[in-house]
Write a protein that binds this DNA or RNA. Structure first.
Lengths: 197, 197, 197, 197
DNA sequence: CATGAATGAGGATTCATTCAT
DNA sequence: CATGAATGAATCCTCATTCAT
């Protein structure tokens, strides 16, 4: 059971760190601030983690692991293009609900982290991500469930950004559940904001 | 002409700084890096600017000034709600085209900068921004040119994010002009990505 | 006992810093020099103190606190004017003996430090000081134990300077004890250097 | 005549510099501040002077040259010990009147400047100064015009400090002329502040 | 597990100084 | 003579990290 207690403590500390990273930015966050928020001294964190960077690493990779668990299930389900997009969006909002800070960190920091070998998996994930979405969109265009007069790449970015940027303002426990937000988002993305005649 | 040369040099250096800030993040950017990119020594920058922070300040306030010049013209034109939204979006993409780095910096840093009194104007701008968009959307719903079954606040965030996040990937001089991108974005936002019957 | 060890270390470091400040002047003293004298690295001082200025602050305010503890006792004792002057001078030499460096720093730096709000207490102290001495001198003139043909303000400065400047050459543990020096100073100040007939 | 105009300008600039050095301390004074006070840019000062240090050097050596011109006249006049002391004190106050800032600088900075070879003359001057005063005092004790029960070295410091410290508060053009101040100081030093029977 | 104290590598900033114009 | 722009060394300070207790 010791290992379990240990794992719980780690998770707790990582949640604290993620919160602070998301609020202040990774670089602007001092180890001391994390330690303050965790009720210990800066040096003490090094009993649990190798470095500030390894905290960031663990936060991001844990998040991506869970994200892909969800995505892979969706992608393996053999859904039609529109249903795939709907399921991916819904899954994404669930991740934002669960891993808000991690998503926010990912948004802000992933671009310049990608340069470091240690964070190469960010690039891998992004490529895999792009492929999955593009394939669904292209299938949709081919099957005429999506419009064919738009640049697919632009549509991809549009949908992707539309979903993930929500992490910057979404707060768990608010008025709307992630599923409700996903529903409205999808409605806008799919139907637009002007009324259908 | 001396004042002019001076102003030009400042603008040049600020453009360089903005580029680096956008690439690496404000905190992660060292003054030395900016100086390197400008072909001078770190200390020399202090002949032109008071501090790293004042460079950031000047970059952001210059951008916001130009942005509002454009927006105010649109808002004063007495357009209908749909035309207002179209004009605001198009204007926004023009700003992204012209002030790409400044927009990217604004996206990434404005949240935690807002806390500092020096950057209070970021909050002011954001409030004014939100009011302008919300009013146009609400008028549109009232006049039935926009759907009434959606949470207006959510629509606002959707459109806002949709537009500005583009700064993170848009590169001036690419295949699409800002107006073309605006056109396609608007088409998606207004009509959705599924074909109308 | 931990708090005690902490306080002791602080006091030790402040004594070192005071020594260096007194020798080289506050501005000319680098943090590194203080650290060298304390046997640590420059950065390590910041574990104990906020800034170079806060070291100076603590040195001066500690000194003034002790000085006023002594002075207030004298002033509350209800002595006659001559005895008051004698006691103040003697007390001053004791402070020079104990806080030599602090006194020297006070002499050299107080004038331009007074401008800063943080060091406003230097002005307060100086005013209180002047009042105490002037009152004693004036009482002495009224009671005819001091000469009435001299400008009291000039006498005040004369006595004041005469005492404190001694800090610039006095070294504890020399031939004369502070009391012996006070005795000879008082003898000169009160009787002059020409023999009485 | 160009040399003359040149010399005047130099003197003017040095007076300005001396004022600022005296007010803020040599180290705390930036070349830019001096230039501001002189109505020019920092770089321009280097047309007139080699360095900030050479300004200080010229200020101090000019002062000491004039001081010794006066002192040497007094010392060569063959006066008695008391008259010598009186004349030296009076001459000193005249120097304070004329070279106030230089005297103040000398007081504050000479101790740590003495270490540098360039300012070796400060030590020479001080030694010569001490000899002159000690001789006069010792002659006075021998001739019984000064008290013999005091440590001569202490008396020397007492008189020396008493005189020079006045530079820290003396402002030319005030109520008292330098001669009047000298008169009252001498009266105190010679007769003390208690009334003679 | 946690603390307290220190390390040492930067990083922003200051400033005397130079020099082409 | 003076300016404007730049240099580069030095300074204060921060902060991730280490480690004996």
């Amino acid at each position: 059971m010791t290992g379990n207690a240990n794992a719980e403590r780690r998770a707790e500390l990582l949640a604290t760190a993620a919160q602070v990273f998301a609020d202040q930015g990774y670089n602007a966050t001092t180890v001391r601030r994390i330690a303050d928020a965790a009720g210990m001294l800066a040096g003490s964190l090094y009993y649990h983690f190798d470095s500030k960077e390894s905290m960031l690493d663990e936060i991001l990779s844990t998040f991506l692991d869970e994200l892909w668990a969800g995505y892979d299930t969706v992608l393996a389900a053999g859904l039609g293009p529109r249903e795939t997009i709907e399921a991916l969006v819904t899954e994404s909002f669930r991740q934002i609900d669960r891993h808000g800070p991690a998503v926010a960190i990912y948004q802000k920091e992933s671009k310049h982290l990608s340069a470091q070998p240690r964070f190469g998996y960010l690039v891998d994930s992004q490529v895999k991500f792009e492929n999955a979405w593009l394939r669904a969109l292209e299938r949709g265009v081919a099957e005429k469930v999506f419009r064919g007069d738009l640049d697919v790449r632009l549509v991809y970015r549009f949908v992707r950004d539309t979903v993930w940027v929500a992490a910057s303002w979404y707060r768990p426990g608010g008025t709307h559940s992630p599923e409700e937000i996903a529903r409205q988002y999808l409605s806008m993305v799919l139907e637009g904001i002007t009324p259908r005649t």
